[in-house]
Design a protein around this nucleic acid. Sequence first.
DNA 1: GCCCGTTTCAAGCGGTCGTTTTAGATTGGG
DNA 2: CCCAATCTAAAACGACCGCTTGAAACGGGC
Lengths: 210, 210
Amino acid sequence: MSASAGTKKRILDVAERLFGERGYAATSLRAVTVAAGANVAAVNYHFGSKEGLLRAVVDRAMGPVNEARQRLLDGFLADGGKPEVADLVEGFVRTGADLTRPREGGAAAVARFLGRVMCEPDPEIRRLFADEVGAVEGRYLEELTRALPALSAAEVAFRYRVMIGLLALHQAGALADLAPRGVSDGSSPEGPDEETERLVATVLAVFRAP
Amino acid sequence: MSASAGTKKRILDVAERLFGERGYAATSLRAVTVAAGANVAAVNYHFGSKEGLLRAVVDRAMGPVNEARQRLLDGFLADGGKPEVADLVEGFVRTGADLTRPREGGAAAVARFLGRVMCEPDPEIRRLFADEVGAVEGRYLEELTRALPALSAAEVAFRYRVMIGLLALHQAGALADLAPRGVSDGSSPEGPDEETERLVATVLAVFRAP
DNA sequence: GCCCGTTTCAAGCGGTCGTTTTAGATTGGG
DNA sequence: CCCAATCTAAAACGACCGCTTGAAACGGGC
């Protein structure tokens, strides 16, 4: 067994946070290891390379989300019937958006990280992430297409991508930052829960449009 | 006068393309200058620093869009009446989305660049961009709030951010890339025009939801 | 023709990047 | 107790980063 399995976990935690805050390219291994109280060599020992570290962080972060979505979808299909659009959308969005809430263990760093990775420019990173979530997302797209026979497959696919994109922006905290400057918003700070509710309602409206 | 004003323009063109393709942090000045057939020192001579170059590219790219949006909004307001939601949304989205079409002069690099900058993690870059578009965007948000009295200001602001975010993803080409892998999409490749139409319709649906 | 401001270039600055090497701790099993 | 396996640390590798320097090319005005 690992003498101090703490190092590996600490590196993963810090990398998740820093990758989410600054992006992958702008985060150096040294920044990660210093913040984690570890050595640069530990990264290459445990993960092989910087990209290996990213892959490990993605794996750990998406694992529970993928499982939750699988279980939810299996539940919808278990009754033998066709799942409804509202169930599919709410299930999919909420399993992702719930990560933005200050979690039991730690913070909303997971969400920020996942949202950020989804928007990374490097196509290799995009592919890495797509491989991780592809299977589950494909099932949801299929079911949504079945549940929306009035819409063409291309139209459903487009709205599906809108859902994924909005969820990513929400997770990354980018939606909250996109407000224009000069407007003195008298609105209250808007907790993450209110924003999640608005997001679910919005995505539902997108799918229900004629 | 500049002996060969070509160098400055060539650097701007290449930077716009590379920043849009790889992101700001992952693009080195050397990559830009080599592709532009220029020297690294030329960047610091013309723009002062890497961030100065970014600022110049943002300025050049957003200038026409800001002007077009100003003119459009002025036209809506000139009749003395309140502009309608459909006009505001279509005007705003189309002025941004039209950049994705292969332009008269060159390519859709401008759009990709703008969409990418809007999603950059670095808060300083976000601020830089927000300063550039803030004034015009603020006016659209105000008019949208006036045109949607049934919705709370916070609700309009949220849907407004959804519009900005979706437009950014569309410009960056991220919407087209977010499709799940394993699904053999029988759909045709979907040109940018079809996607723009879908985007306009979707954003309109978002604002018209109760 | 010469001059001076503008523009470009090759070279190099200190620093940081991702990665590797080598050696020293630490640990559980025989 | 010792050994082998596991893990971490310090130092260094070559490469590349953004930026600066000093000098060469260029151009129009006198």
